[in-house]
Simulated assay, not measured.
Amino acid sequence: MGTEPSPINPVNLTAEIHYAGFWMRFWAYLADLIIIGSLTRIFVSSIFKALGGGYVDYSFFSPATILEVTIFYLYFVLMTRYFGQTLGKMIFGLQVISLKDDKLTWGTLIFREFIGRFISKFTSIGYILVGILPKKQGLHDIFADTTVVMTRR
């Protein structure tokens, strides 16, 4: 009557760890972008139309863009914090785990999603590393000491 090891707890992980590769993570991220894009366009457009504007300005530092970026980062941080995965990762059976702690901490997640992802986006090698490194870590994973594993095969 033993308990199954939890994929979110690296201490309980067995030798059967299956790291999520570049393409699985790419498709999950693409699904997340579609979900976030759809929700933010509906949400942001509705707010600005309710405030009396028919046209929503999406220039670089516009209130609409700032609100969309805030929703984007909150989605990744909160979903990963509370579920260990975003909706895109749920669809593809992936989960983010910490390689140093029992669970993902706020500090780890904020560092991974804000600083690490920002650096990865502006350096082309940031995400390419996922296809090269043995633990399939992107630059943002390396900085935060996390990785993404397959929860089902």
Rank of each mutant, 00 (worst) to 15 (best):
M1L: 11
G2W: 13
T3P: 12
N9V: 12
P10A: 06
T14E: 15
I17V: 15
I17A: 05
Y19N: 05
Y19P: 04
F22S: 08
F22G: 03
W23T: 06
L30A: 14
A31K: 03
A31I: 12
L33D: 05
I36H: 03
G37H: 00
I42L: 14
I42F: 13
F43W: 06
F48A: 10
F48Q: 04
K49F: 03
G52Y: 00
G52P: 09
G53K: 12
A64Q: 02
I66G: 15
L67N: 05
L74W: 06
Y75T: 11
V77E: 07
T80A: 07
R81S: 04
F83L: 15
F83P: 07
F83M: 15
L87S: 06
L87C: 11
G88E: 05
M90I: 09
G93M: 07
V96W: 00
I97V: 15
T108A: 01
T108V: 11
F111K: 10
I119H: 03
S120T: 05
K121E: 11
F122D: 05
S124C: 13
S124Q: 14
S124Y: 13
I128H: 12
L129A: 01
V130N: 06
V130M: 10
I132V: 12
P134S: 06
K135C: 00
D141I: 05
I142M: 13
I142P: 08
F143H: 01
T146N: 01
V149E: 00
R153M: 12
